[in-house]
Design a protein around this nucleic acid. Structure first.
Length: 937
DNA sequence: AACGTCCCGTAC
DNA sequence: GACGTACGGGACGTTA
């Protein structure tokens, strides 16, 4: 018999209204009924059933747990079991999806809920629920009421949603082991004090209850943010300040969702309550009632234990609604689509392949759109599903498709028809792939380039982003059709119905984007940039990518081997010096070795509070005579060269062409520059002796020579022109050493016998000008203090006042217009130029200075690239353009034509600004040739 | 397992 | 905090 029961039994007083006032309730126990029953359900094996077959194991466990609890509480205690009422709670009104994807109750649990309610009543315990509210709200409200009455509260549950209630006077208890869950446990789970739990949950969300939260933010980050900003509202109003781009954007975009989430998890403690504290006071169970319950459910062992056994025998036991996409599987339908495209004179085209790498990709299918919502997909090389093996009913076989070559033959005339405009999103990719099959695609329009020209700096230009932005449409994620991770398949294994949805959507979206964006060229005066720069450049880049460059794998392999050996030696030495083995490549571990174990001086920096171990820091330490940092510097250099270049490049050699085919990105860099990836051939080392050797692996085909032609100081020249800085312009016209001259002007030293360090300083300032100089940056660069750097800049501006004027003007116009322009009219938007966060604003200000300069140079070399191919052709020269590296063009030239080609290329490059821009400074292009890129540059 | 971020380093 | 534009590798932490 329980203690409570004994006490009650001893005084033998039946409960009566007129009984003398008892001492007030001092402690209220609130049992989270659902949580309780779930715990019981999962803890016990599902073996028990009632005589009628109803499963009872959860109810049994529940009854046991509740009896145990009842035994442990006293006469001055109150107790209630709270359940969720059936039906939707008010939270579903705030957020319809709330608990929407909650799985159905297990089949063997649902029928146990009525039993459990009976159990509670049989024990003479109040059983409370309230339609429209959840148990948690009732618990919160009763806890509040008890607290106001001066009673302590224990909530029996381990549900994290209740943890927000923990405060002095309100504790939680784990129903399984009786452990008290205190503020420390909450801290452990949420990373914040209980009072801030709901703010954390608002960000974190809850997949079980379908509370959305903010994407990409989990417990860890949520706690960090709430710690820092105090609460959700304050965080949201300072969301702008968050450093991490993705996180910042999500916080802004999903701010309302976070508020709703907070509202969803916030418990209401102000409900009207049906019971006062006294009503809930613990009573002795009424034996008859309890016995009846136990018997009915076959809980014989409990009855026996409680002495209630009367000997009775029991048995123990998609959105694409408007679009009509067509799957084209026969020649007739294909011809019909081709005819329609030809009649219309405009068609959006998209190819599906097996790879993102255009040169390695196998063509799998083609989609077309001829009007918004009107699109088709023509599968050409789809295989059966699964692993391709045939199963006995033949399902693994390839689906019905138009024969590959026949389809291409049918498409070819339309794709090359000058009267039919082919629209693509990043159509260069499609051109390269189709180019393999001897299919020329012309003329073209590219929605990615349209967006790039119209909105550079505002956002990216990938199709998903454009669809979202301009069409308010979410495209089907690739992983939804092809899977991801281990289960990912190539597109030729995607079932045709899915392939149709995906591929036709791409063409459809492209068509719609084009209809939206193309007219804006004229309205926004961007026709020229698009028509004379980006659009004609696209086929040039296609050509370059298909050309590729020959890379000698033997050279790379030998270098990799050499590097591996040297790294191993250095590692030995480094471990010896450190006195332990560690991951040298981990800045964190290295920092700990250097600054903690060896206690070298070098302090912290960086926002994460980690030690910086960059080359600057290591250099300084090495200069103080420390061997370890010096070795790590060597190790780092070799590791970089090996992993990024000599190892990685070998993997990029196309087995078919034996060449490396980079991909040029035409719509990535906001200034108008190109970028190169997979592999990036625009950052092959050159500055150090060791690194430069990698260029020896880039070689000309037999009988050819590499020709490198690069612009000399093009950005500084353009800066001089644009700022109209007469003295600089004159220096360029006189072909002076510009850095030496700057040194002479700024520091007042004679050109003759100039100290190289003085010239180096001037060079750093000149570079700083292009980047939108700051005293910090210059100081960093020159290894001087900021004061000195500030003086240099001041001196520089005094000598070149027009430069200063140019910078101020750019900043001003950027603020006024929201964008800056290159000499050729390319616009670069600077959406953060008015930001109230100083760091971001100054970032935009520097970009406002740099973008017109860098962008104008980019325009010029693009013009040269566009012109040089027909010029070579006209001259009957066989040179092929292989690479562009911002101010350099690299050609592969038949040996006999080197001289003529050099002359022609220099000519084209030096006059590339004309006739649109009449430069007041000369452009100079310098040429070099050799068997390898190392020799040619 | 996939992703994002950080740190670092390469190019112009 | 921290000079412009990129890409990428490795470490690491978080999310799911």
């Amino acid at each position: 018999m329980s203690d409570a029961a004994e006490r009650e039994t001893e005084d033998k007083t039946p409960r009566q209204q007129d009984e003398a006032p008892r001492e007030p309730v001092r402690h209220l126990y609130l049992v989270d009924g659902s949580g309780y029953i779930f715990r019981a359900y999962h803890k016990l094996p599902p073996t028990m059933t009632r005589a009628d077959g109803t499963p009872t194991h959860a109810a049994y466990g529940f009854t046991n747990m509740l009896l145990k609890l009842l035994r442990d509480i006293g006469a001055r205690d109150a107790i209630a079991v709270i359940f969720d009422a059936d039906g939707k709670s008010f939270r579903a009104d705030i957020y319809p999806e709330y608990k929407a994807n909650r799985p159905e109750l297990p089949e063997d649990l649902a029928p146990q809920f009525p039993i459990v309610r009976d159990a509670v009543r049989a024990m003479n315990i109040a059983c409370i629920e309230e339609p429209g509210y959840e148990a948690d709200d009732l618990i919160a409200s009763y806890a509040r009421r008890a607290e106001e009455a001066g009673a302590k509260v224990t909530v029996i549950s381990s549900d994290k949603d209740l943890m927000q209630l923990i405060r002095p006077g309100v504790e939680m208890m784990d129903p399984m082991d009786g452990r008290i869950i205190g503020p420390e446990d909450v801290e452990k789970k949420f990373g914040v004090e209980p009072g801030k739990v709901i703010d954390v949950q608002a960000l974190w969300g809850d997949s079980v209850d379908n509370v959305p939260g903010v994407p990409g933010i989990g417990q860890k980050i949520a706690a960090e943010l709430i710690q820092q900003y105090g609460d959700l509202e304050n965080l949201l109003s300072h969301a702008e300040e968050i450093k991490q781009k993705k996180r910042r954007e999500n916080l802004i975009e999903f701010a309302e969702q976070a508020r709703i989430s907070r509202e969803l998890v916030r418990l209401h403690d102000d409900m009207e309550l049906d019971h006062c504290l006294e009503d809930l006071r613990a009573h002795e169970p009424e034996p008859d009632k309890l016995r009846a319950f136990l018997e009915e459910n076959g809980f014989k062992s409990i009855a026996t234990r409680l002495g209630l056994d009367d000997g009775a025998q029991q048995v123990a036991a998609p959105e694409t609604a408007e679009a009509a996409y067509e799957l084209v599987q026969d020649m007739d339908r294909l011809r019909a689509w081709i005819d329609e495209a030809t009649r219309q004179g405009i068609v959006a085209v998209d190819v599906e392949t097996t790879s993102l790498d255009a040169m390695a990709a196998e063509l799998v299918g083609v989609s077309m759109a001829t009007a918004p919502g009107r699109a088709c997909y023509i599968p050409l090389a789809h295989k059966g599903e699964g692993d391709g093996s045939l199963d006995f009913d033949g399902k693994g076989g390839a689906p019905e498709q138009v024969p590959f070559e026949a389809a291409l033959d049918a498409l070819r005339p339309m794709l090359a028809d000058p009267g039919v405009l082919k629209i693509g999103q990043n159509i260069k990719y499609d051109c390269v792939v189709l180019g393999h099959h001897g299919v020329e695609v012309t003329p073209i329009d590219d929605t990615m380039l349209l967006s790039y020209v119209l909105e550079a700096g505002k956002h990216g230009h990938g199709m998903d982003e454009l669809a979202r932005l301009f069409l308010d449409h979410e495209t089907i994620p690739y992983k939804d059709v092809a899977g991801s991770g281990k289960s990912q398949v190539t597109f030729d294994r995607v079932p045709l119905d899915k392939a149709l949805d995906y591929a036709a959507e791409d063409a459809d979206v492209t068509f719609r984007l084009h209809a939206l964006l193309k007219p804006r060229l004229l309205q926004e005066r961007m026709v020229t940039v698009y028509e004379t720069l980006e659009r004609p450049l696209s086929p040039v880049l296609s050509r370059m990518e298909r050309n590729g460059i020959k890379v000698d794998p033997g050279v790379l392999r030998r270098m990799s081997q050499d590097f591996a050996q040297r790294m191993a030696e250095l590692e030995e030495k480094i471990y010896e010096l450190a006195g332990e083995r560690f991951t040298i490549g981990s800045p964190k571990q290295l920092g700990e070795i250097l600054f903690e174990k060896m206690s070298l001086q070098g302090g912290r920096k960086g926002k994460s509070g980690a030690y910086s171990t960059d080359a600057d820091v290591l250099q300084t330490l090495a200069a103080q005579g420390h061997d370890l940092p010096a070795r790590v510097l060597d190790w780092r250099q070799i590791q970089k060269l090996k992993s990024t270049y000599t190892d990685a490049l070998q993997d990029y050699i196309n087995p078919r062409t034996k060449r490396v085919h980079t991909s040029f990105q035409q719509a990535v860099a906001s200034t108008g520059r190109l970028s190169s990836s997979d592999p990036n051939l625009q950052n092959i080392p050159i500055r150090t002796e060791e690194g430069r050797k990698i260029r020896q692996a880039f070689v000309a085909e037999e009988g050819n020579t590499l020709l490198s032609v690069d612009y000399s100081q093009i950005e500084l020249r353009l800066a001089a022109h644009m700022a109209d800085e007469e003295s600089l312009k004159k220096a360029f016209r006189d072909d002076l050493d510009i850095h030496a001259m700057t040194a002479s002007e700024v520091f007042g030293v004679p050109l003759e016998g100039m100290d190289p360090s003085v010239r180096r300083s001037a060079k750093a300032i000149n570079f700083g000008i292009i980047y939108g100089i700051s005293p910090y940056g210059l100081a960093q660069n020159l290894g001087i203090d900021q004061g000195a750097a500030r003086d240099y800049i001041k001196l520089y501006f005094e000598r070149y006042p027009a430069i200063k004027g140019y910078m101020d003007e750019k900043k001003r116009s950027a603020v006024d217009d929201g964008f800056v322009e290159t000499m050729f009219g390319r616009r670069i938007y600077l959406p953060e130029i008015k930001s109230k966060v100083p760091g971001r604003r100054s970032f935009s200000e520097r970009a406002a200075i740099n973008a017109p300069i860098q962008g104008s140079a980019a325009d010029i070399i693009k013009r040269a690239m566009i012109r040089v191919l027909p010029a070579l052709e006209d001259a009957g020269l066989g040179a092929r353009l292989l690479l562009q590296v911002h101010d350099e063009l690299l050609f592969e030239v038949p040996e006999a034509e080197v001289e003529a080609t050099t002359r022609l290329v220099r000519e084209v490059m030096e006059n590339a600004a004309a006739p649109v821009v009449d430069l007041s400074v000369p452009l100079v292009a310098e040429a070099g040739t050799g068997r390898s890129w190392a020799e040619a540059h």
